[in-house]
Amino acid sequence: MTGPAVVTMHLWGVPARAVPRAVAHMATDRGPLRATPGLRFAKLLGTGSGRTFTARDADLRRWGLLAVWDDAAAASAFEQGPVPGRWRRFSAEEWVARLEPLAARGRWSGQEPFGHPRPRAWEGPVAAITRARLVLRRAARFWAAVPPVSADLHRTAGLRLALGIGEAPVGLQGTFSVWDSGSALNAFAYRRTAHVAVVDRTAREGWYAEELFARFAVRSTSGTLDGVDPLGSAASGRP
């Protein structure tokens, strides 16, 4: 990968009657995405509450697309293209965040989709993505450890949005979260007891066969989730 990545996260909310169409698009959109100019990496995602990271968390009325682009022009051209256009025809709402990687480590499907950004300060909202492929024989211990961390996450000051994300209902687990600032995210990641304990267990017990952690500057957002933009006018930070 050469040059800085431009990352977008699309989230679509669909009415109950359109859930079958959304499920179908999770399969049929893969071909058109592979043919999209300037697209480096993409994952069509189901979403959920992230409370337990089991199938019962799944939210069949919210779906996502994470994409990494060569440049802003490619991302902008995609916005006017057929894949988002088809989703808009049956979605009740759409929220789009344009992101810039600040830090990343690990792999997703054998790739390093966000490159190796040079760490730097960012004054403004941040987003975080975690993703892991579970070692199935250790999954039960992971699932048992999740609820206390999730409950604590939703009590943390500065959190604007938190979703479970995944390419499959079981075994491929992730989170997407949006925060007022990097300091708010750091407070959860490094100073909340429940999260620190789980991170320690992850290293000791080897829960993951593959894992990735990434942090992003939120450059802009548009649209709504549940009727509001989680960040409103806050996505205007600066380096």
Rank of each mutant, 00 (worst) to 15 (best):
P113L: 00
T28F: 12
D200V: 08
G46H: 05
D29C: 12
S181L: 09
E211A: 15
D229V: 08
V68P: 02
F90S: 08
F53S: 08
L44P: 09
Y190G: 15
V199L: 15
A55H: 04
R155Y: 03
L136S: 14
V149P: 12
A168N: 09
P125R: 01
G110P: 08
V149I: 10
R160L: 06
S109E: 15
S181F: 06
A187T: 10
M1I: 08
A203W: 12
R17P: 13
G174D: 05
P101R: 00
R21H: 13
E93Q: 15
P169S: 05
V6N: 03
V170W: 09
R204T: 14
L66K: 03
H116C: 03
V228C: 12
L45I: 09
A121C: 09
H154M: 13
W179F: 07
R131N: 12
R204I: 12
G237F: 00
W122C: 02
A157V: 12
G81L: 08
A121Y: 02
V178M: 02
G48S: 04
A16H: 12
Q80R: 15
S222Y: 03
V198Y: 05
R141P: 14
W143M: 11
A194S: 13
A162C: 05
R204M: 12
W63I: 13
V170K: 04
P113N: 01
A235D: 00
P37W: 05
W63T: 14
